[in-house]
Design a protein around this nucleic acid. Structure first.
Length: 820
DNA sequence: GACCTGCTGCGGCCTG
């Protein structure tokens, strides 16, 4: 392979009135030289054609050249993380293939593909196939996978940054290793948005054994205008809160301009509330307002997306469900309500906005409380300096490995030594030990020491040739139904009496309502009629809502990168420098903070102590993000109680945490140092958090991925409770009789890493060791303390500490499950 | 003076 002939591509571009960009040509030629790599560019920059051009030109050459190209088999595989992207991708690629005169079939294979089409596809594979990581894994579980992929020359992984850092990414790494084994000269091209660790992202995609790939830089990052909606000079600005609706008038002014807008919120209920508030303020906009989040029925969402593409909407209120996907032309404006949380996240959302007259896309940030103004200024600075968060790939997830091995066993079967070698070519399992490998093999063949007596766990058997194969057809069917690494709890459906489906809410919310109560969902006021079989039946209500559903979702902490920038800006304020407009608007508040206490800064840990009717409050501000603060707060409370028995209430946010006790011992710097030491960190954390309860919960997901828990057949899935109960049982049994079980160990590790961000927590403690501790006794709650106080108050109904709440919730679920 | 929230994503029987 040398250079490709670009003539047909150039002609096709010319027919469209385009000019191929130099990075596109670079990618085509790199592909022709047999190289792999990563293409980094903004969305809409022609990345897709950069990745496709090479294979298209090559395919053209083969078709004209030899008969060998007539052999059936997929030649190009396109992986997308989103079903919703598959259709658009297929259309675009089909168009491109036709445009250059390449007689290839371009098809899609996802969960949406009809089973007749799947069968046809298996017999008669298309030349180009668009699919998801899960469907690729399914394809590998068929016995004819070898034949199917024998002709494969290229894999293109779209939105690789979305998969990187999750178990979906690990699953894909494993599948790619298998494909490379089938086809050693396979070329892999990833497409990625901006990321702090592009080199690592590429190395992970290609595998550590690969020759160095090509990192192809597309068009330069677009300039981005990050602005804040500032309160009027005379207006008060709330010290705490999260909704941001106090600024609705400003938002409405903004929306009154012609053109379309996407308004992003951080949570689903916030989206519901904003949609309702906008509608209440401007009922004449009824037709032009849309709502989009992950709990709304997919069909309803699809209609909103289509309307957005058609330009029917003035404004669509959305959560991350519209961060990517959906091939709509850019909107005219993007608004972000509440904390941006991270630079990459804000940039991605802003990227939904087309160029404004001056050629710059922009996002208007609506702070939901005063201190968020700092975050907005911080995000702007970080972006200007080219700082974007990294996403770290996961390693050694044995649950995913176990699933993949059963997939291979269900396909043609696998041979142990060469498969170990193959697995070790992935980034995730490059350091897989022989012991862990042997353990995994035992796990899928016999279920391990504890479960050996149960035939259900003898999923894979070794045949007379020494090949590991799936035990029987029933196991194969069960396995295929459990492929994938995304786990989610059973949700309650919301339906009209007539059967119309609206979406899902959580049981914990609906049990608080009685028939006749009115709640807001999918942008409608709904009256609850009755609840039956995990379905809430509703009808339209004339009255205004009394309740808004809450979903218990992930809690994205402020990124470390943004937190550092926030601290930097506060340090400048401490020096009297207020450069950004946001900082100027915040000046009065920060001056109060400085007068009553002090401003935190890098290298200075601020600790405040306040006495109130409630007791003694201790506020500490490490700026390490909410999850790490929850861990730190629990750790500190536990260490304090080790000295003198006492109980503390705890609150945490992205900036710091609070401990409240009836009495608080005198705490000078010398007292605090050992309490905030790294020594014995993990042990203390584990003892303080009732970690086994947390690990139990984490274990549920791991057990599902590893295939220990069968979720039931489609449509009659076990309820979340049953699942929780059976996983709890398995966990307890294993933890008791096989304490070194690697999946239990993995559950503990994942709790530390994901629920507590232990790396960040550790780093914070090490910074504190170097830092000056500034102790302040304050008369009142300072501006930094107030949001924490409010945060804790919110939890007053269940005023137990965080880990107790989690443990209690699990206990309740299990109790409920034990009842007939 | 004051507060009430927690994202997204996939897949599923059939070997003629």
């Amino acid at each position: 392979m040398t250079a490709i002939d670009e003539t047909p591509l150039n002609a096709w571009f010319a027919a469209k009135g385009w000019q191929p960009a130099s990075f596109q040509k670079a990618a085509w030629q790199a592909h022709a030289r047999g190289e792999s790599g990563l293409i980094h560019s903004a969305t809409g920059s022609g990345k897709s054609l950069a990745a496709w051009g090479g294979p298209l030109a090559e395919g053209l050459g083969e078709v004209n050249g030899s008969e060998k190209s007539r052999r059936p088999g997929v030649r190009v595989l396109w992986i997308t993380p989103l079903r919703a992207l598959a259709g658009d991708t297929q259309r675009n690629l089909r168009d491109a293939a036709e445009g250059v005169g390449l007689p290839w079939r371009v098809e899609t294979r996802t969960g949406d593909t009809a089973s007749s089409a799947r069968q046809r596809q298996r017999k008669n594979p298309p030349e180009a196939l668009i699919t998801t990581p899960e469907s690729l894994s399914l394809l590998l579980s068929y016995t004819d996978a070898d034949r199917y992929f024998r002709q494969l020359t290229t894999v293109i992984v779209d939105e690789w940054h979305e998969l990187l850092g999750s178990k979906r990414g690990v699953q894909l790494e494993l599948c790619l290793a298998r494909l490379r084994r089938l086809q050693p000269r396979l070329r892999t091209w990833g497409l990625s948005a901006t990321l702090g660790n592009l080199d690592e992202a590429m190395a992970t995609l290609l595998g550590p054994g690969a020759h160095r790939g090509q990192l192809i830089e597309g068009s330069a990052p677009r300039p981005l205008r990050i602005e804040a909606l500032l309160p009027e000079a005379s207006g008060r600005f709330p010290w705490a809160g999260h909704l941001g609706t106090h600024l609705i008038d400003g938002v409405i002014d903004h929306l009154s301009q012609p053109g379309s807008c996407l308004l992003f919120t951080n949570t689903r209920s916030q989206a519901e509330i904003w949609f309702e508030s906008l509608l209440r303020a401007r009922s004449d906009w009824l037709e032009g307002l849309g709502l989009h989040h992950g709990s709304i029925d997919r069909e309803l969402r699809r209609r909103i997306e289509a309307g957005l593409a058609a330009g029917d909407f003035r404004c669509v209120v959305a959560t991350s469900s519209l961060d990517l996907g959906v091939d709509f032309s850019p909107v005219d404006r993007v608004i972000q309500v509440g904390s941006p949380k991270g630079v990459a996240r804000l940039a991605q959302r802003a990227g939904r906005c087309g160029h404004q007259p001056d050629g710059i896309s922009g996002v208007l940030c609506v702070p939901s409380h005063a201190l968020e103004l700092v975050e907005i200024a911080a995000a702007r600075r970080a972006w200007a300096d080219g700082d974007v968060e990294a996403r770290r790939p996961l390693r050694l997830c044995l649950d995913v490995l176990a699933q993949h091995l059963v997939t291979l066993a269900t396909g043609g079967g696998f041979e142990a030594p060469s498969t170990l070698e193959e697995i070790r070519t992935t980034h995730a399992f490059a350091d897989l030990s022989k012991e862990a490998w042997d353990w995994t093999l035992t796990f899928i063949t016999r279920g391990g020491p504890v479960l050996e007596a149960y035939p259900d766990f003898h999923r894979v058997a070794r045949d007379h040739q020494g090949l590991f194969r799936i035990a029987d057809r029933r196991q194969a069917a069960r396995h295929r139904m459990s492929i994938g690494t995304i786990t989610s709890d059973a949700a309650m459906q919301v339906r009209y009496q007539g059967g119309g489906y609206l979406g899902t809410i959580e049981e914990s919310f609906i049990v608080r309502l009685r028939p006749g109560d009115v709640f807001l969902f999918a942008g409608r006021s709904l009256e609850l009629l009755r609840v039956r079989d995990l379905t809430a039946y509703v009808r339209r209500a004339g009255r205004r809502r009394q309740a808004v559903p809450r979903w218990q979702g992930g809690r994205l902490p402020l990124s470390g990168m943004l937190a550092d920038r926030v601290l930097e800006l506060l340090a400048e304020a401490a020096d009297g420098q207020y450069r950004e407009p946001e900082m100027q608007a915040l000046r009065p508040l920060l001056e109060i903070q400085r007068q009553w206490s002090a401003l935190p800064a890098p290298g200075r840990l601020l600790v405040e102590r306040t006495r109130s009717r409630e007791g003694e409050h201790l506020f500490i501000y490490p700026f390490a993000g909410r999850l790490a603060h929850e861990g730190l707060a629990t750790l500190l409370a536990w260490r304090l109680a080790q000295r003198t028995p006492a109980t503390f209430s705890i609150a945490a946010n992205d900036y710091g945490f609070e401990l409240l006790g009836a009495e608080m011992p005198a705490l000078q710097e010398t007292d605090l140092r050992p309490l905030l030491s790294q020594e014995g960190l993990v042990d203390d954390l584990l003892s303080s958090m009732n970690a086994s309860e947390l690990a139990r919960r984490q274990f549920r997901d791991i057990a599902r991925i590893a295939g220990l828990i069968f979720q039931g057949y489609p449509g009659q899935g076990k309820s979340a409770r049953q699942l929780q109960a059976s996983s709890g049982l398995i966990f307890d049994t294993i933890a008791r009789y096989d304490p070194d079980h690697r999946l239990v160990d993995q559950a503990r590790r994942e709790v530390l890493e994901e629920a507590l961000e232990i790396h960040r927590l550790r780093q914070t403690l090490s910074h504190i060791e170097q830092a000056d501790i500034h102790l302040a006794e304050t008369e009142r709650f300072t501006p930094l303390a107030f949001p924490l106080w409010a945060e804790r108050l919110r939890n007053r109904l269940s005023s137990q500490s965080w880990e107790d709440r989690v443990a209690r919730m699990i206990g309740q679920l299990e109790k409920a499950a034990d009842r007939p």
